[in-house]
């Protein structure tokens, strides 16, 4: 499903070269539940962004569903992101002027899905995350947990195969955080591949597989 082959990514910070990813080789199978843990600056988010095709790699190859993504054009990358990958962010990244339903519909709108089908799928997503009564609310009228649920609905409304969650509970209180993790785990049980970046050990240890990172390297 996801296969990283001697992948590196370096950043220039001032005069220094920082290794975001340093010769990482990794394989993740379809339907796995993986948590990526490590201190800040260890390269967790860089790994997630690379898997999400948001970041380019300096060295190595990344195969997604058997396809070498390092050779894809900008347009193909965008299409792959849209079809296969869902993102959940720490800061939700909802568009403040759009309602919950419109935020969820956004990836479908970008994909050019017809109006009726879009509504149907958005309503189904709202229902499955018990947000139906919040459909017409704007993000500033929602609680943190509700906002993250809207963001999750937006991530899964396109039926991606991989769900990437970068500190999804970082801006939430404990109860909402547990609720969000429960939702993500339920989605995983329904078949989605779940990658969760966190530095909360308690949450991280709920995953089937834990990847520890340090200075851009995956610890064995």
């Amino acid at each position: 499903m996801i296969k990283l082959d001697h992948v590196s990514r370096t950043f220039q910070v001032g005069d220094e070269l920082v290794h975001g990813l340093d010769d990482v080789t990794l394989e993740i199978k379809a339907g796995e539940y993986v948590s990526i843990m490590g201190p800040s600056g260890s390269g967790k988010s860089t790994l997630l962004n690379a898997i999400g095709l948001l970041d380019q790699l300096d060295k190595g190859h990344y195969f997604l569903d058997g396809k070498d993504t390092t050779k894809l054009s900008e347009l193909e990358l965008a299409n792959t992101r849209r079809e296969k990958i869902g993102f959940v962010f720490q800061t939700f990244h909802l568009i403040p002027r759009l309602t919950a339903a419109e935020n969820i519909a956004l990836p479908l709108t970008l994909a050019g899905v017809e109006h009726d089908e879009r509504n149907e799928r958005v309503n189904a997503a709202l229902k499955s995350l018990s947000l139906s009564d919040r459909a017409r609310h704007r993000p500033d009228q929602l609680s943190g947990g509700q906002r993250q649920r809207v963001a999750i609905a937006r991530a899964v409304v396109t039926k991606p195969v991989v769900l990437l969650a970068d500190e999804p509970t970082g801006n939430l209180d404990h109860a909402s955080g547990v609720e969000v993790i429960d939702i993500l785990e339920t989605l995983n049980q329904q078949g989605i591949t779940l990658l969760l970046v966190t530095h909360d050990t308690e949450l991280g240890e709920r995953a089937q597989r834990i990847i520890h990172m340090m200075d851009g390297k995956v610890l064995p």
Partner: peptide, 16 residues
């Protein structure tokens, strides 16, 4: 800026 980043993450192309 953040919204543009989000649109890209959701699969918006350069042209879009």
């Amino acid at each position: 800026t953040a919204e543009i980043g989000l649109l890209k993450a959701l699969g918006a192309t350069r042209r879009q």
